[in-house]
Design a protein around this nucleic acid. Structure first.
Lengths: 223, 223
DNA sequence: GCCAACCAGATTGTCAACAATTTTGACGAT
DNA sequence: ATCGTCAAAATTGTTGACAATCTGGTTGGC
């Protein structure tokens, strides 16, 4: 998209630039290994190089880019080991979110979500409509994290998810993965609806561990 | 301490300043709520204000300080709710580290640690030698995290621990807490020595959850 | 041809001055 | 005395220029 040269009502902030760059990185619009040069990016976003460097500093803390002194910044390349590490942490943290959400939420809080995981989800998967499955899984994650009422957990999980987002989408391309995930999520939701927080946590752990196993088996196609 | 004015072999880096400030913050040498002014700190560490600001940016990402625009930075004040949030995350993440450590480590990897949790620990606690107890608990945490061979987990846990370090130390002042923690750690180590990763993880969770409960009960004395 | 030294261009790192904003303190009216 | 106003001082935010470093290509010697 062509950049507007005219003056905005207010100048873009460092956080704005961080969010735009984060989006571009997690969607692999800026692929792993891509070199990020300061001057062109600063010009593109209409900010000074110093402020863009502040944005780089934040992206580095988030683990999205890596910087070497006097050599610049590149989009982080995830090794297979690092993916395993991220999955291990998501396993326990997303499961924690599910447990807290189950404990905190009132009765019937998951009715709408349960409905969306119903027969129409089955049909969507049969027709290879992966966007639908992605939308309900995203809704599940966002709603459970919000209901967990744990801000620090929410931020940490967002950071972890950003780093694996593309891989998770690719994993859904593997035949059978979406169907397996659907069944597992139904079981989790059943436990949540029954108010069994401990079981829901355990099932969510098994869900992510299973996803990690599938990833290992199809690693060469996904990475 | 009086600052040396002479030139060093190499100038201090931003990371050096971050580490010094982090140390001062987690030890409450800079207490929660303390205002951090840029110019005096930059002069104290012998760096320019711009670089000190970079350090502030990192500390903000770590959650150790909070900044408001045009108003400066203060050391983060933890609310009771935030402490609960941090404990909830430590519960699952440190337990994960214990599980991974148990799975990864060879036979006998915990012999030295088990020895240090032996009768001499009992005597130290009876004599109110809390430093000894702190040393072995620290060793337990550091060795399990290292053995988990998960760098991202390690960094995340370091960040969480920094923010609660002083509170954990104060919790040990509560009569009986150290003794309870000692017994729990012995059980965890027994499971680790037996190679039962799942049990060790479960016991570590109960250990931290218990610590969180004690904290809740003595909140008004500790916070 | 091959390699090392070297130079020009590009890129990143650092700084000190300037601008914008907030805080402080004095002053005067009610 | 209390409050509002306003200017001065202190503090933070931003920028452009300069220094340090790396990259890639060229030259010259073997």
């Amino acid at each position: 998209m062509v950049r507007k040269a005219g003056k905005m009502a207010k100048s873009v902030s460092v956080d704005d630039v961080v969010n735009v760059l984060r989006e571009r990185i997690v969607n692999h619009e800026l692929p792993p290994g891509a070199k990020l040069r300061e001057a062109p990016l600063a010009a593109e976003y209409g900010i000074s190089r110093a402020r863009l460097r502040d944005a780089f500093s934040i992206l580095e803390q988030l683990g999205l880019i890596e910087r070497v002194r006097n050599q610049g910044a590149i989009v982080t390349r995830l090794s297979a080991e690092q993916v395993d590490e991220l999955f291990a942490m998501r396993e326990v943290l997303e499961a924690l979110a599910v447990r807290l959400a189950t404990e905190n939420a009132p009765k019937g809080a998951w009715d709408e979500l349960t409905e969306r995981f119903g027969p129409q989800a089955e049909r969507a998967i049969a027709e290879h409509d992966l966007d639908y499955y992605i939308s309900i899984v995203t809704a599940f994650r966002e709603q459970t994290i919000a209901a967990s009422q744990n801000e620090i957990l929410s931020q940490t999980l967002d950071g972890l998810y950003d780093r694996t987002k593309v891989l998770i989408r690719r994993l859904l391309l593997v035949p059978g993965r979406a169907q397996t995930g659907l069944i597992e999520h139904r079981k989790i939701l059943a436990a949540m609806n029954a108010g069994d927080a401990v079981l829901a946590e355990q099932l969510k752990r098994e869900n992510i561990r299973g996803a990690c196993e599938w990833f290992r088996n199809y690693r060469k196609f996904i990475l």
